[in-house]
């Protein structure tokens, strides 16, 4: 009995069993259920009505488009604010830069709900009305570190010889940046985009808290449907979102694989 147990543990393949079970129960089964619910009606009969409803129903469609726009704006702002920050950090003395990077990441150690509630309190204190502006602020505040870190990481690993080579060949400081540092850091930017754009689409808590439920994002719509028991429609919406996110990821596959190679994803 004991011997059997030992030989079972001795085979390395068997060690993967718990992980395989985890994946099956928490990824595969829920996915299958989402697909199942998306293509059935409450009676359990096959239908594509749920999917059709998304295209016909203007409210859901509009929320979706609005969410994508918010995500695009957030991502753009994160790049605009995050890239220079990452660039400055990468030029600093390594020890100092590490400390400041930690300061940037520090808020991540606090739960984002608590952080967002604190943001609400701050806005109230300064009597700034909540709404669209507050929403974008909250999104950028929450996701900025995910943009800074991968870009900083790749800039800081850029071979200084390449920059010198560009200078040597006649590039002035602006040209050095545009022709070497920027193109070389694109995998970092892509990695940042993946980590900001996709989660923002499906966030709902930040929108709820920072707009006092006035602005609905796609995540909110999803949550509402599941909450109200219209699981089939909710599942269809989830599936559509999943496919679209999957598509952006696929479009970035080249850059992403390169970024992953550089160990860029947090």
């Amino acid at each position: 009995m004991q011997n059997k147990m030992l030989s079972f543990l001795g085979r390395r393949r068997n060690w993967t069993i718990p992980y395989a079970l985890f994946l099956a129960f928490f990824v595969l089964v829920p996915m299958t259920l989402i697909v199942y619910y998306a293509f059935t009606n409450p009676e359990g009969k096959f239908t594509i009505a749920n999917i059709q409803k998304f295209w016909i129903h203007p409210e859901a469609m509009n929320t979706f488009i609005y969410s994508v726009v918010v995500a695009l704006i957030t991502t753009a702002l994160c790049i605009l604010i995050g890239y220079p920050a990452a660039y400055i950090l990468s030029k600093m003395e390594a020890r100092k830069a590490k400390l400041i990077v930690i300061l940037f990441i520090l808020p991540m150690w606090i739960n984002f709900l608590i952080r967002t509630l604190a943001t609400v309190a701050l806005f109230d204190f300064f009597r700034i009305p909540l709404g669209e502006g507050a929403l974008i602020f909250g999104m950028v505040y929450n996701f900025l570190p995910f943009m800074i870190y991968p870009i900083y990481n790749i800039l800081q690993k850029t071979d200084p010889n390449l920059i010198e080579a560009a200078q040597d060949l006649g590039a002035n400081p602006v040209q050095v940046f545009l022709k070497t540092e920027l193109p070389l850091s694109i995998p970092g930017i892509i990695s940042g985009i993946l980590m900001v754009f996709m989660p923002v689409i499906s966030t709902f808590a930040i929108a709820e808290l920072l707009t006092i439920n006035n602005i609905k994002l796609f995540g909110t719509t999803l949550q509402e449907n599941i909450y109200n028991g219209t699981w089939n429609y909710g599942a269809a919406l989830s599936l559509i979102m999943l496919l679209l996110i999957g598509l952006t990821a696929l479009m970035n596959r080249d850059g992403n694989s390169k970024a992953a190679e550089e160990g860029n994803l947090i």
Partner: peptide, 18 residues
């Protein structure tokens, strides 16, 4: 360096990978 009439061959080549 970008204004000097010299060019350098670097030790580890420093070719632009992109």
């Amino acid at each position: 360096p970008h204004l000097r009439p010299v060019n350098t061959v670097f030790q580890r080549y420093a070719l632009f990978p992109h």
